[in-house]
Design a protein around this nucleic acid. Structure first.
Lengths: 254, 254
DNA sequence: AAGTGGTCTAGACCACTTA
DNA sequence: AAGTGGTCTAGACCACTTG
């Protein structure tokens, strides 16, 4: 007996740092407030800047901090709840959805998408690009893949490209009888083009929501939407604007 | 004129590295295969080990790689789709769900959870711990918070703690008339205890699924389930075992 | 021009797994 | 004991934003 053996698992410095900073954020800082810069924080805690950064990265991943190059590190507001629920039945572009079309091109879809589009693996499809904005901030970027077969009335879409054509494709889609949807969520990292529209650096963590739209007994369209993982909480149902804290603190007893 | 100006955005080394490695994984490696160790890879690509690691971290985040201390880096299998859909109506612990109860304690819930439990902010609740296993691998760890009011027939639960008591609480829950559910998904990092059961290091990226169960016009229980973000794709509907590629490759044209 | 975060280096030691 | 990934250091330079 005696040796209370508390050092069995020597906690990494950055992990302990993260805890300390997290508590400091809760008590000593207000949302939007600017933290001291990384060099100063590192000095203050007596660690190398890389170690301090490791802690900051974690906190940013958890949506507690926001860092911008050339500006500084600020305390992030609580994550905003964005509804991606099936309650939102209907085709993309239906009246009142929060997406705004940007442009539309034609391209051969990635194999993963092609596989969902009933195997048309080398055919071009319409690719509609849309942005989702909430509270004035861009929260998601989407690529909507629509096979030509889904919008047969192609002649009605006169615009060769651009937002006008995007709206045209969406309008044609509405005419189909929707038979169901199908959603999946996974973690990914932002491609360069998405990152740009989400105001993040390439590689930033995103939640990728893949939706299949069914009609005519097949897949009429596939949407790949990438949401900012740092600022968004995806909700399914009516818990939209409920505030859920950043991390679930440990408070267990026997 | 002439300067074709392709160096406008000098791509970071680790980003380029990631692309190269990603393509190599597609063509030259099989699932489960072991990569050369970090020091050799760094030397082979002529970069510092830290830079190489930055690329590997991204690939691990995207579910392409799996790294284990003392063992090595292996090519990860495609993400497994786990159903968290509302199709799975019913109380936790209903027959045939893929969770297995581990233990049950009493504790004051974190404030974020307490806020969802109709404001009982300082009262103890039952905390049921469960594990979700798929294909032999642990994919999620859950804490289920059940207010005492939801399982009034407390006397029927004789076991003071442990898996038996957990099953008891779940059994009592079944007796209530469910009035609805409510789900949210967000990115988080694994707490120490969750990490242990998920066979990951603390801080590993996880998808946190928060579910509210409604009954009696209030919140009867709250579940906070943390899924391994590297190995899981959360599905809502019947796209369970459909294979979706790791990252959506860029293949766009005009 | 000054200050910020982002990238990169070349090393060191530690914790863990396996043989 | 040897080999792996995980942590940490002390520096350097770069890209970006702002006054």
């Amino acid at each position: 007996m005696g040796t209370t053996q508390l050092d069995t698992v020597p906690e990494p410095k950055y992990w302990h740092l993260k805890t300390v900073l997290s508590e400091a954020l809760d008590s000593d800082f207000a949302v939007g407030e600017i933290l001291p810069n990384e060099r100063e924080l590192a000095a203050r805690f007596g660690v190398a800047r890389a170690t301090l950064r490791q802690a900051l990265e974690q906190l940013e991943l958890e949506g507690r901090l926001q860092r911008r190059r050339g500006v500084g590190t600020t305390v992030a507001p609580p994550r905003v709840g964005v509804d991606v629920g099936t309650s939102q039945h209907g085709w993309p572009g239906a009246a009142g959805d929060s997406w705004q079309p940007v442009d539309c091109t034609s391209a051969v879809p990635p194999v993963a998408v092609a596989r969902m589009l009933d195997g048309d693996c080398d055919n071009e499809v319409h690719v509609v690009r849309r942005i989702r904005v909430t509270h004035g901030q861009p929260v998601a970027a989407e690529l909507l893949y629509v096979p030509a077969a889904s919008v047969l009335d192609l002649a009605a879409i006169d615009s060769p490209s651009g937002a006008a054509r995007a709206r045209g494709v969406l309008r044609e889609l509405q005419r189909l009888a929707m038979e169901g949807q199908d959603r999946a969520v996974e973690l990914g990292s932002a491609r360069a083009d998405d990152a740009k529209e989400l105001d993040r650096l390439p590689g930033a963590p995103v939640l990728v929501v893949t939706t299949r739209y069914f009609a005519h007994g097949g897949t009429a369209a596939v949407s790949v939407a990438t949401y900012r993982a740092d600022t968004c909480r995806l909700t399914f149902g009516d818990s939209g604007d409920l505030e859920i804290s950043h991390h679930t603190q440990e408070r267990r007893a026997s």
